[in-house]
Simulated scan of single mutants.
Amino acid sequence: MQYEGLESSPNIFYTGATTNQQIVPAVSWLLQNKGKKFFLLGSDYVFPRTANKIIKEQLKAEGGTLIAEEYTPLGHTDYNTIISKIKKEKPDVVFNTLNGDSNVAFFKQLKDAGITSKDLTTLSVSVAEEEIRGIGASVLEGHYAAWNYFQTTDTPENKKFVEAYKAKYGKDRVTDDPIEAGYFGVYLWAEAVKKAGSFEVDKVKEAAKGIEWNAPGGKVKIDGENQHVYKTVRIGEVQADGQFKEVWNSGQPVKPDPFLKTYPWGAEVTKK
């Protein structure tokens, strides 16, 4: 899975995005394309809390404004009060770090309140193709998400991957970012084992540095310093068929920076 960054364990290889491969570029894109006034909405646990701590420093540095910051318990399903606040505050963007069933409730209640993607830009970092199936494409159409992979990503590897996935699990099933990250992780490990000529953990770990593989979402590479993976960043708009139309990508795989050392404002996050 993608996660909130600020971590690097010698015992973990991170195939999901860290902060500078999802959240930070998404905020920059929103500021440049959708507006400066942000409403932060998240579930009350470590990922949204940490993500929003990072976003607040980024907004200060890049000219954005924090309108409100709201958290609800995991599994929360009544968003009418928060939606009333969104109507009152009139943000340009809702940056959504809700998780699980809360997304179903929030987006359905947003639509019931007469607010569509034409009225309000939302960008989510935990809503992928599988979640769209559960919530409904008609509810989410026009809203945005940031990931490193979409089922619609145009690579030869992805065409084969999607066909094989549907052949095995059913034509109505969808792939998504966490599925792709779990998939290519096995292949990166296999390449490291081949290079090491051994299954011994320490030998495989050493051999893994710099390993590259053409994943369905594009080329990935293991960073030898922090055991995260170089990944291309993508922003997509939900379509009526439940798939994403890619509206922006980083052009090349982004070096993972879990502690935000390459950002002038990153030190403000890590010292708190």
Rank of each mutant, 00 (worst) to 15 (best):
T270Q: 07
N96M: 09
D154F: 09
K37H: 07
I67A: 10
G217C: 09
I132T: 12
Y230P: 05
I135W: 00
K203Y: 07
A207W: 05
S124P: 04
K209V: 04
S9D: 15
T65Y: 11
N158Q: 08
A164M: 02
K56Q: 15
V186E: 11
K90R: 11
T116H: 08
A146I: 13
W29L: 02
A113R: 01
A51K: 02
I179L: 13
V94H: 02
F39A: 00
K245W: 07
D257M: 09
G266V: 10
N33W: 05
S84D: 00
K166D: 06
Y71Q: 05
F161P: 02
A113L: 02
T65R: 12
A190S: 10
K87W: 00
V229W: 10
E70Y: 09
A192Y: 04
D177G: 12
D177T: 15
G5Q: 11
P10Y: 10
D172L: 07
R49V: 03
R173F: 13
K245N: 13
K209E: 08
Q151R: 07
Q239E: 14
V174H: 02
D172N: 12
S198I: 03
G63R: 09
H76G: 12
Q58V: 05
A167H: 04
N214C: 01
R49W: 05
K231D: 04
Y263D: 05
Q151P: 01
Y149K: 06
E163R: 10
T97S: 14
L110G: 00
E191H: 08
K255H: 13
N103T: 04
A113V: 01
Y165V: 01
E7M: 14
G210W: 10
G75D: 03
E4M: 14
W147T: 08
Y14N: 10
D202F: 10
A145S: 15
A267K: 15
K194T: 13
T232A: 05
L66C: 02
T19Y: 12
K36R: 15
T175K: 04
T270W: 02
T155W: 08
E131K: 08
G224M: 09
